[in-house]
Amino acid sequence: MLLSPEQLLAFLPAAVLITLSPGPDNLMVLSLGVARGRKSGMVFGLGCALGCLSHTLLAALGVSALIAATPWALLGLKVLGGGYLVWLGWQALHSAGSRLQPAQQGGAEPSLRQLFGKGLVANAVNPKVILFFLAFLPQFISGSQHAAWQTAQLGVLFTLQAAVLFGSLGYFAGHAGRWLNTSPRRGMWLDRLAGTVFIGLGLRLLVVR
């Protein structure tokens, strides 16, 4: 059973508004795009978007409901996700300015493949995204038949529009960051800003219930 036009017209605008609203993924893509350039921002954003596929699979299989109902599993995900974001932030702070001074830092800048993987993991281990998919997607399911298949289609559609929007955000953030990164001092502070954003988001995930 394919999604009906009515389901698409109801789901897509809501998905776009939610993706565009300020949140952890947006902030990470924006800060990384400004600090590291548009390619880095776009690749990291694509990783964040494709991380939604794991949540789609979990929601379609009903695993998300099980995780949400199991306090220790949800707590474990919070610790894992928050700790991972703090680690990413610490890396950004530790390698401040490395992109502009590769000879002095031994070329420590992460590759595009690494940035994609970091975005993928950062989204995949975020328990709030699991809960969001569990609460959001069922609102657009029509009837009880083929619910898992409808959930999968909605999740893939959400992922596709997120990839476009996050990619655009990374591109324009990187475009603005090109001028800022012409100075090593600016680049150092941009790296510190990106690291601070990541650490703040990680601590928020660990502390806020």
Rank of each mutant, 00 (worst) to 15 (best):
V29C: 00
L193I: 08
L205R: 04
S54I: 06
V29N: 07
G81Y: 07
A194P: 11
A92I: 02
S183C: 15
P22M: 13
L3I: 05
L32C: 11
G62Q: 15
Q139E: 06
L120K: 00
K78R: 15
G83P: 03
L20I: 08
V34N: 11
A108T: 13
V29T: 08
L165Y: 01
V125W: 05
N123D: 03
L85G: 13
I141L: 02
V121Q: 01
G83K: 07
V164F: 04
Q91H: 10
R38D: 01
A152R: 02
D191Y: 11
P138E: 08
L206R: 11
V125P: 01
A122P: 06
L190W: 00
G82P: 13
G83M: 12
L205T: 09
L180A: 15
G81F: 09
Q7T: 15
P71N: 04
L134V: 12
V208F: 10
G97R: 05
R36S: 06
N123V: 05
L190D: 06
S144E: 12
P22V: 15
I130Y: 08
G97E: 09
I141F: 00
S54A: 03
G117W: 00
F11E: 00
S98Q: 08
A15W: 08
V197Y: 07
L32R: 15
A59M: 14
G37W: 08
G117L: 04
H55Q: 03
V16E: 02
V16K: 00
L58K: 00
W90N: 07
S111Q: 03
L137K: 06
L206C: 06
R38Q: 07
S31A: 14
T196G: 13
G81M: 06
W189T: 13
A147C: 09
S31Y: 12
A163R: 01
A122S: 15
G170D: 02
F132I: 10
S168D: 01
Q153R: 01
W149K: 12
L50C: 02
R178G: 05
R204M: 04
G76F: 03
A35E: 11
Q139Y: 03
S144V: 12
A69I: 06
Q139H: 07
F133P: 04
S111A: 02
Q104I: 04
L53G: 03
G107P: 07
L100W: 04
P13Q: 13
A148G: 11
L58H: 05
L80Y: 07
T196D: 09
